[in-house]
Design a protein around this nucleic acid. Structure first.
Lengths: 389, 389
DNA sequence: AAGATTTAGTTCATAGAGTCTACAAAAGCG
DNA sequence: CGCTTTTGTAGACTCTATGAACTAAATCTT
């Protein structure tokens, strides 16, 4: 098939054993089943490039380990009928999406399909928030006792410290640096993996998008601030201390408003939800509008100040996205956030500014279909990505 | 040792055969010999984590294929004396560094040591430039007939089309889109690999730097324009059509001078060599100064206008570097270009602006020790990186 | 000086893994 | 009923790493 990866890349300083090919191929076969189920062994062999006998052995392993199941029997023009394989729908993952406005706990199957879902009212005090989350998780687990849970994936509105794997920094929630991972692990007995919302969305796009995960993409999460998740060279680009993707603080306007970081005119200060609300107030809009949803509703109803505010935000949004495009040249940039609910109206403005003076075609720019779902579905990816199989 | 890489990463959509471990381990062993030569089999086993017997087999292979040689015999406090292994110094690579101001052709051994070196006068017309390069390469090859050449690595002042692997776009040379790779391959009979100067420098840092190539770094090449090479997740980050790293066109100053790309205040227009010369002229400097080297010399002599021009450039340079740091959070940012020759004087200015308002420690910022050498030494990496072993 | 100890490097039986060929199973078609 | 086609399995074969045993060659101890 395609040529082998560079043999001199530095990716692996790790020696390989005889079990390495099985690990790789097992991974490959599982992902093919995940993305193309139902699928027969023979088709897996054709798609993967492995021999039918090899696929059979790997499938046997995966069935023994309860990751997949034999399903219905297919039908062909002639020849023996294939046995379809599918993900084991008795296995499930708990998905937690912590969000400033609303926190959701859900159960998804291994394919990322949402099976059950609850909202959790998050107490303001951090000390009470985590018990509330644990209670929500427990409730869903007991309500789905027929499932075997593989782990818990959490999407956070803040940074996680990948080195220690347990701290988060979530200024938008007014939480201090917290060590939530071990607490939830102890309380539930399940493995917990977490990452910030933008990375979660990026993983969702790669795992559940129609593309095969072979190209680079950037997810830009526009809410109170602006964060981003970068998928490049086949992995999330995390950077030192997980700090990569902080495009929110690239300077867009040297004369812009002062940012919390101390600089002027950071992208966040001119293109975030907060910026849009500020434009609205400064433009003479009603002081009663306090949330982005309200502002968007107003604009959709045709209120002039609201439209103007979102138009200004859109232009700045496009300008920053253009910088991301020239910095990383991904194949796609995906926007997540409230503004996407009015993309039909403001998307063209963003796109116009995004394409200004661009020499070549540039990346595709599109809104995420549903950020809430994407963050929840990322749970499977988070849990499985760390190699639980 | 370290835990295995994620089994669900999408890096490899490729099936593995039972030869895969050998490929990986051979790669690993060769790189250990490359970076730690001279080294014994026993030490290789200790460092790699492989068994002594496995290392012996791989070493036998590498010797048979002429990549390495048995060298001198060591001495220990007690026990049998180890046989040192080293790179085969009969094998060499041709390194070509095409540069607007001067083009160099060199021969390096597999360890990147420069064995021979010639300057090539590049005719202005592109039609005559390539024959001149070929002649220079031929001359060095015949002058080093004791060597066996593995390939030719070329560093270019422009973009290469990685998809087709043969086109380059080099506006700074006033060359049209050219297909130089197959021409040189046909003329010399050697495999040609090429990449732009910034990527070449990044590869050099990873291959020959003291770090083990396990972390992310960005090389910023400041000359007429500004280009960059991004090393992340264990590989060069190339992006769609090899266009990643075009930080030169991020906007630094919305009211800045008009850039060739159509926007205002691109980083290139305020922090490149060209920008420094413009500051100098606008500030009332002598019109006779036309090159960056001359400007730097003048500044080093204390001429006020020159100092001022380079100081302005330095501040803008630092500002852009700050954006790279927050976008990618690499462990290191390395600056290459003429300005590094006066880093002792202007580096602190760059660094000061770079660190403005930075919350955390941030990446290390440092000048490349020698950009010319780095670009030449990248030839080995370019040739070997594509898997010729 | 002879044996003990230590370290380097090799040999070989063994087990894990994928490939490839042969073959059994199961369906449609004439 | 036999032929063809396709799915899935079995087994011989090859490649590879492992780990224990072994040889080689040096120093240390007595």
């Amino acid at each position: 098939m395609t040529p082998p990866a560079s043999r001199f890349a530095f990716t692996q300083r790790q020696s390989a054993s005889n079990k390495t090919p099985r690990q790789i191929n097992r991974n490959l076969v599982f992902n093919l089943i995940r993305t193309r189920q139902p699928i027969s062994r023979a088709d897996l062999a054709r798609v993967s490039g492995l021999q039918r006998s090899t696929v059979s052995l790997i499938v046997e392993d995966l069935i023994r380990d309860k990751w997949i199941l034999e399903g219905s029997i297919g039908r062909l023009p002639r020849g023996r009928r294939p046995t379809f394989l599918e993900l084991n729908h008795h296995r499930a993952v708990v998905a937690v999406d912590i969000h400033p406005s609303q926190t959701t706990v859900a159960v998804t199957d291994l394919g990322g399909r949402i099976v059950a879902q609850n909202l959790v009212l998050l107490p303001v005090e951090p000390a009470k928030a985590i018990p509330a989350i644990i209670a929500g998780v427990r409730k869903l687990i007991t309500a789905n006792e027929d499932k075997t849970f593989v782990g818990i994936g959490i999407s956070l509105p803040g940074r996680t410290d990948l080195g220690l794997q347990k701290l988060i920094f979530a200024p938008n929630l007014n939480w201090p640096v917290l060590s939530i991972k071990p607490r939830i692990e102890r309380a539930t007995g399940l493995r917990v993996e977490m990452d910030n919302a933008a990375n979660a969305c990026a993983l969702s796009e790669v795992w559940f998008g129609d593309s095969d995960g072979n190209h680079d993409l950037v997810v830009v999460n526009v809410s109170e601030g602006i964060g981003s998740g970068i998928f490049a060279n086949g992995r999330l680009l995390r950077g030192e201390n997980g700090m990569a993707g902080e495009f929110g603080h690239i300077q867009i306007d040297a004369n812009g408003p002062l940012c919390g970081c101390g600089n002027r005119g950071c992208w966040e200060t001119v293109a975030s939800n907060r910026a849009a609300l500020r434009y609205f107030q400064e433009g003479g809009g009603s002081a009663s509008v306090q949330t982005m949803e309200a502002l968007i509703k107003l604009a959709q109803a045709g209120e002039e100040h609201a439209v103007k505010a979102l138009e200004t935000m859109s232009v700045y949004l496009g300008r920053g996205l253009r910088m991301i495009a020239s910095a990383l040249a991904p194949r796609e940039i995906i926007v997540v956030g409230d503004i996407t609910s009015a993309w039909y109206r403001f998307g063209p403005l963003v796109e116009a500014e995004f394409k200004v003076n661009s020499l070549s075609k540039g990346p595709r720019l599109r809104p995420s279909l549903d950020g809430n779902t994407a963050r929840l579905r990322s749970a499977v990816a988070l849990v499985m990505n760390e190699g639980s199989i």
